[in-house]
């Protein structure tokens, strides 16, 4: 997943319903990349699970302990920004009441870009 920049050229060679600009803009958000990568294995992830994954990835990348305040920040960012945006782009359905996602419809190329084998 860390080498996604090297894989971006894949986007230009694949037909997706979304424009490259659209996808690049989405992927410029680190929390979007982490969220989409995790959805590969867990298409029905909860908000809490996704916040945990973002804090876990931060702990790895920054060699430090991921704290409860990191978790709160990730949770709010997911709820108000990441998941509504992914929903707007029809990559998933986000239910704010259930605090969970469903109907994940991510183009396989996006997983490949993020380093998940398809």
């Amino acid at each position: 997943m860390d080498n996604y920049l090297e894989n971006l050229s894949l986007l230009s060679t694949n037909d997706t319903e979304r424009s490259i600009d659209e996808l690049l803009e989405l992927l410029s958000d680190r929390n979007v990349r982490i969220t989409v990568a995790y959805l590969y294995d867990h298409p029905n992830a909860t908000l809490g699970e996704l916040a945990t994954v973002i804090v876990g990835k931060t702990a790895v990348d920054e060699s430090r302990f991921g704290t409860e305040s990191d978790y709160e920040r990730a949770y709010v960012h997911l709820y108000h920004s990441v998941l509504p945006r992914l929903d707007d782009h029809e990559l998933l359905t986000f239910d704010p009441d259930e605090k969970a996602v469903s109907d994940v419809d991510v183009p396989p190329v996006l997983f490949t870009v993020l380093g998940v084998e398809e």
């Binding site: 997943m1 860390d2 990568a37 995790y38 590969y40 294995d41 809490g48 916040a51 945990t52 994954v53 804090v55 876990g56 990835k57 931060t58 702990a59 790895v60 302990f65 991921g66 704290t67 409860e68 990191d70 978790y71 997983f111 993020l114 380093g115 998940v116 084998e117």
Partner: peptide, 21 residues
């Protein structure tokens, strides 16, 4: 977590509350 080459752990308390990663 197929996409995460370097894994991590998350600790939860008995009430399932997040404690840290």
């Amino acid at each position: 977590a197929e996409a995460f080459d370097d894994g991590f752990v998350a600790i939860r308390d008995p009430d399932n509350g997040f404690r840290g990663t």
